[in-house]
Every structure is written in C-alpha cells, then in structure tokens.
Nucleic acid binder design. Structure first.
Lengths: 156, 156
DNA sequence: CGCCTTCCTGCAACTCATTTGCATGAGCGG
DNA sequence: CCGCTCATGCAAATGAGTTGCAGGAAGGCG
C-alpha cells in the first residue's frame, strides 16, 4: 500500500500550505503569495468562508488586498479548486472542492447546511441522488442544489 | 369583446386587485396604493420577481418609490403573503405564497427552478418530502431548500 | 545570473441592491 | 370632520462585489 496518504487526522499548517502550493502548481499557474495564502486558509476551514472572513484571517500575518482576495477566489472557482455558495445574506461563501472536479463542468453534488444562528455554511457529504420534482413542460434541469437550514452543532 | 370564461384559469386584472386588497385587509393593515399595486402585480406574475422588475412594472401607471417597494415587500414577507428567494446574482426575488401559511413559521415547502439563461426563478409545486441527508452530530434541520438550475421552457 | 515578457497585485474609484433617517402625508377609527 | 398612527417619499448611507490602471514579481530564456 503506497504511503502517499498522509493521515488526514492532523494536517499541520505546513502540510496544508504544501498541498495548496501543489494544487496551484498543478493548475499550471504562477505560485504567488496571495494564492497560496488564500487556498491554504480555505483548506484549513471547516466551513465555507466569506470573502470578509478570509481577508480578516489573513490580515494578521500575510495581509492581502481585498480586491486581490476577490480575484484569487474567482480564479480558484474557475480552476475547480473551490466553489462558491450563495447565502441568504447575499454574500458569497467559498469552500474547497473535495473530491475530483473535472474540467469545466461543476460536479458539485453535495448539499449545504446553513446555520440560522451563526450564519455559517457547511458542506455536507453528498445529497440523495434521486431528487425527483415535477417540472413544467420544456424545463430541463442541469444541476440540483440542496440547502438545509437549522442550527449547527456549535450553536446548541 | 368576447365573453370571458369565468373559470379561475383567467383571472382578470380587476379580480387580482380585489384579491390583493382582500388579502391586505385580512392582514389587519391599512390598504394603501403601493401595497395594493405591489401585491396585485405579484399575483399576476408567473415567476418570482425582483424588486427591480416590480418597480419597473409599476412605473408605467402607478409609480411607487423604490424604497417603498422594498418596504412593502418586506411587509408582505412578514405577513406570510409572499416569500423571498435568494438567487445566485445576489438579488432577492419575491413570489406570493400559494397555499396556507401559518403564523411566523415559514412553511415554504416547495422547490425552486432557476433558469441559467434568462435568470428567472419559478416556484415549483412541492418537493419530495423525504430528503434525507446525513448530518454531523448535533446539527438540527429546520427547513429544506431545493433549487434546480437549468433552462426553462421559455428559453428553449 | 540577469533580462524580458506576461501575468498578478494593490490602490482608488465605481456600481448597484438594499437600508436608514427624517419630515410630510394619507388611512381609518371615532 | 379630527386626530392619531402608520406609510410614503426623498436623500443619503452602507456594504459586497467590480473595474481601470500602473507598478511589481514569477518564470522562461539566453
């Protein structure tokens, strides 16, 4: 059994940065401070982060301009390394894409959970594959989005 | 003028206005021009309308201030007469609540369809009642939101 | 190792949906 | 018809996200 799998139990900051840099390189793009910092931070997150959260989180030791964070996030989404989630508060939230993401097609087959208390959004494993809803004639579904709202474990 | 069938299939503008006014009265609130106009327009819509669409639609003969439209919509949602939908474009869309809506609890058990071409959002009948997704320990679901994305009948 | 080209970053100013403050004006109960 | 409230309109503010532009760094190349 190849030892390639670093135990997912305790990824260190260094491990995450290495993973982030590797992903950026694989995308065939320049490895820059902001990209590395943003992706590393996203890899460490246990919930989908807003642009604001990310900017604030980086402000401490590796401040990145607001606009640059926006552009990095946009780029990450284009590369399929992250996906963006629209929330009730009209603010985008970003989360790394776990699992394979092929080319341009957004696979993105997992559900989201939005906490009505703290406002945080979490990515859930996967959604029931068989979502059947009656559509009016002529409508063609391309993607399904499932969001649960409630109270997260942290808020109870 | 050809006699119109009294079937509920073809509600006239007057019918809708009467229905709107009635709903407003039932809510125990003042019947005002803007409220009547906005709700009447919403009743006639076949899709969820944005604040902008509504304002534009009313501009023709019964112009209402932008801010007032916002406030009327907010009020309609509070009264359970309408519900708001968050879209990918970070713009709210409003639609009248079909069926019973009890008190404060948002029942709102239907799915939505968002067209990726024209951007319009439609309310679908209802969603499969049994949506089961594995949640992390301690999470409690209060509401489920299902949105389909694709191309609507009009855009094909 | 240093140059060059290309792409990235930071700054400033801008767009646009939505919100808030405030004074005037309109429902409607009496 | 009167007055009390609550709704409306206008102006200005908020805040997320965008765009234009000039300087600066990442990598390829010699």
């Amino acid at each position: 059994m190849p030892a390639k799998s670093s135990h997912t139990s305790t990824p260190t900051a260094a491990t995450r940065k290495a993973a982030a840099d590797s992903l950026i390189r694989e995308a065939g793009a320049r490895l820059t401070g902001p990209r590395s910092a943003v992706l590393t931070r996203l890899l460490a997150a246990d919930h989908a982060m807003t642009h604001q959260e990310i900017t604030d989180a980086l402000a401490a030791d590796q401040a990145v301009d607001r606009v640059t964070v926006y552009r990095v996030l946009e780029w990450l989404v284009e590369q399929g390394l992250a996906h963006r989630i629209a929330g009730e508060d009209r603010v985008w939230r970003f989360s790394v894409s776990r699992g394979k993401v092929t080319g341009g097609g957004h696979d993105h087959r997992h559900a989201h959970f939005a906490c009505t208390q703290c406002g945080q959004t979490f990515c859930l494993g996967d959604m029931p594959a068989d979502v059947k809803v009656k559509l009016p004639a002529g409508f063609r579904t391309e993607a399904v989005e499932l969001t649960l709202r409630g109270v997260c474990g942290h808020c109870r």
